[in-house]
Amino acid sequence: MKREIHPVFFWLWAACLVTALVRLDEILFSLTAIFATILVVKLVGVTATRLSTLSLALRLAGLALLIRMLFAILIGVPMPGRVLFSIPQVNLPDFLVGIRVGGEVTTQRLLSAFEEASLFAALIVAFGGANALSTPSKILKVIPRRLYGVGVATALATTLTPQFANSITRVKQAQYIRGQKSSGWRRIGTPVFEDALSKSLDLATALEARGYGLYENPTRYRAIKWDGAQLVALLPLLYLAAIYPILILPSILSLLLFIALLITPVVVLQ
C-alpha cells in the first residue's frame, strides 16, 4: 500500500466530500463521512505526529458539537415536538419576539441542532484528515514556482506550530514546578513568546546562512506528479462537485457522488 499519492489529492477529496455533505444535509451521511475519513487515515498509515492533527480535529469537532447542543438547549426559537424537559425561561423584552432563553426543550429542536452540528463536525474532520494525510509543506512543494517564497514561508510557519505547542507545555510544567497551580496569561505568555522569538531568530539565521531567497530560480528535489489512476478517480467527481450546487436535482445525484467518494480512496490506494 506504499504508493506515492499526490499531496493535493486528499484535499480535493475532502472538498468534494464536504460539498456532497452540505447538499445531503443528513446526520447519517455526516457521521459516515467522519468514519470514512478516520478509516482512510488509518488505511494510508501516517506517523504519530501526523495522526495527532487528526485527533486534534476530532476533538475540535466534538467541542463544536457540544457547544452547538448546549446553545440549542439554552437559546433558540420555539419549535414544536415532544417536550423532553424544560428549564426556567428568562423573560426577554417584547421586541425580541420569537427568541427565547431557556424554556421547553423539544426533540425537534435537539434533532435539528444535532444535524447542523454534525455537518459542521464532519467538515472539520474531513479537512483535519486531509491535513493529516498530506502536510501543508508537501502541498507547497507542488504550488507554482511564482509562489515559491510565499510557499516556503507558510511551510515554515506550519512547522513552527508544533514547536510552539511544545514550548507551552514546557513552560506550564515549569510553572507547576514553582508551585503555581493556576498560571495566568503573563506567566505562560512571557516565556513562551521569548522562546518563540529566540527560535525564530535561530531559524532566520539558518535560512540566511543557507542562502534562502537569494537566488532567482530555486529548483525542486523530486517533483511530485499526478499519476493516471488518481486523476481518473478524481476528475469526474470534481466535475460533479463543481456543477451540482447549481443544479436543483433530487438528492439522488448527491448520493451517487457521496458513494463514489467513499470508494475513491480505496481504489487509489490499491
Binding site: 543557507r210 542562502g211 537566488y215 530555486p218 529548483t219 528535489y221
Partner: peptide
C-alpha cells in the same frame, strides 16, 4: 535538499 533547492541546482545533480 533544501539548500540545494534555494541555490537552484539541477535535480539530477541534486540527487
Amino acid at each position: 535538499a533544501f539548500t540545494l533547492e534555494t541555490l537552484g541546482i539541477a535535480p539530477d545533480v541534486m540527487r
